[in-house]
């Protein structure tokens, strides 16, 4: 079973997305802020990370930067989740090494396709 780390501060989004992913057969590990996300990334060694950009404590970009700078975790694919709101987010995400990008509200089919593509690599 593929292990997904979902780093998302919004409780409802976290609940909803994790339940839907579990229904699709993923094991989902949750983190509520950037620091907790980084800790769980190191401990749990997930197969893929879904990372919200606007997070308390450490923002998503900082989490991404640190995850990609650490040899232990740099090869774990990261999909950035954000509202389409900030166009520059997308550039910044790819600049920092994100593997893909999805906008909220999440189209689950689309997200699953991106996840599958990255997990198969």
């Amino acid at each position: 079973m593929k292990k997904i780390l979902l780093i998302e501060d919004n409780e409802m989004n976290r609940d909803m997305l994790s339940r839907r992913l579990e229904r699709k057969g993923f094991e989902v590990i949750l983190a509520e802020d950037g620091r907790e996300g980084l800790e769980k990334l190191g401990e749990a060694k997930p197969d893929l990370v879904l990372l919200d950009v606007s997070l308390p404590v450490l923002d998503g970009f900082e989490v991404l930067r640190r995850a990609k700078a650490e040899p232990e975790t740099s090869s774990i694919p990261v999909i950035i989740l954000t509202a389409h709101a900030m166009d520059a987010d997308r550039e910044k995400s790819f600049e920092l090494g994100a593997d893909d990008f999805d906008t909220k509200p999440i189209d689950l089919e689309g997200l699953l396709a991106k996840m599958t593509a990255l997990l198969e690599e």
Binding site: M12, N13, M16, L17, A83, A85, K104, P105
Partner: peptide, 21 residues
């Protein structure tokens, strides 16, 4: 402005997501 749209969309995210669930 993007943040305002984002906030509105966050509600929709919940509505659409839970309805689908």
């Amino acid at each position: 402005l993007g943040k305002i749209r984002h906030n509105l969309k966050t509600h929709l995210n919940v509505i659409i997501g839970y309805a689908e669930l």
